[in-house]
Design a binder for these strands. Sequence first.
DNA 1: ATATTTTTGTGATTTTTTTCACAACACTAT
DNA 2: ATAGTGTTGTGAAAAAAATCACAAAAATAT
Lengths: 209, 209
Amino acid sequence: MIKRTINRLFIYKNALNHFKKLGFVKVFSDNLADAVGVTPSQVRKDFSAFAISGNRRGGYRVNDLLENINKILGKNKVEEVIVVGSGNIGRALIRYNEGFMKENIKIVAAFDTDSSKADRDNAIPILPFEEMADFIREKGIKVGIIAVPDGAAQHVFEVMANAGIKGVMNFAPIMLKGTPTAVISNVNLALELENIIYYVNAGESAAYL
Amino acid sequence: MIKRTINRLFIYKNALNHFKKLGFVKVFSDNLADAVGVTPSQVRKDFSAFAISGNRRGGYRVNDLLENINKILGKNKVEEVIVVGSGNIGRALIRYNEGFMKENIKIVAAFDTDSSKADRDNAIPILPFEEMADFIREKGIKVGIIAVPDGAAQHVFEVMANAGIKGVMNFAPIMLKGTPTAVISNVNLALELENIIYYVNAGESAAYL
DNA sequence: ATATTTTTGTGATTTTTTTCACAACACTAT
DNA sequence: ATAGTGTTGTGAAAAAAATCACAAAAATAT
């Protein structure tokens, strides 16, 4: 699978934007490798997988490379996403919206089962969960973020999937089951921390997890 | 490397606690596999790597298994961690502390360069960044979370590392360089979302990222 | 007792991912 | 022109991870 390659492509893109901002016109595979924490071969192999080419001896022109990568990753239009759950994580994501905007991601609404939390006047409105399915269908939303308590996540997912959601970022530490129509990515910050703590206590001195 | 195995062990642990709560006394490798989204062989291979054994035909006794896993993952005492940056992410993490507590992780303080944000009376105090190094040394803190703007992350990391931090969860989308004495785990929510969006737009119908 | 069934534990195999290593090329200097 | 140098692009090799597949063991049934 080229899943990892795709993921790295996003990371290269990021590094390239940095380089560009710093005024670089050309980069070499080892510049990117350093910036991103992989080997130069890895960088070249990744590019090779998508037939991105540079100049032997001349490296890659930052602009061309960015253009190529952007074409592959296809990020031109803003993607509208919704958040379900307005607890700590949900609210943090909403507030972080500016950060997402830089990557062409826009949180357009949040939903909560506790309808007393509804707030339609907010820049990013918080709406009753019952309205979610219609909202998804009407606006053609494709991506949703699940930031609800564990017990509610499966149900939320099913409603989302039925309404046509195609991708989900799930913060609940459970495996979402059913409808194999959506791409799912689980994010679990406590798990991430537990891993770090494990290696620290194991006396691991340096590693990227 | 057994990095992935360790990570899965944490996930199995989680699932086992669920099973236990539901009253299960025994589990089979395929129960765990289902719960966690891997193959039964994978589960057994993982256990095998740490010489955890069950009963042929009888599966694994939930309690024994949990005990074994906990012994390997070594999580008995609470790990005290600090957060640097009291922006959206930092504050969200602080508020999420209850969630971490379930996993024996406790955020004991936050730090911010903007000393006007200081708040010593909070349950989790927010302190001026200048006090961080001493705090780390005095309390013997091993793990820190970097939730500051990109530009500040490297500096924060260096101060942390010098003060003795051994593990870092980094929310800034940059490669932290230098002092190879700390385990580093990068978390990038925008990147995660970008990946999801990529697969959604690529028409990928079902996948776990 | 014996046969049958179920599930583990693991060596062998396959698949995936990364690294190596070097020819091909392009640029520079002489 | 020619030699020298630095960097790509990519097959080949190595390493890492996942899956297969099946004998061995344990429980149950006959």
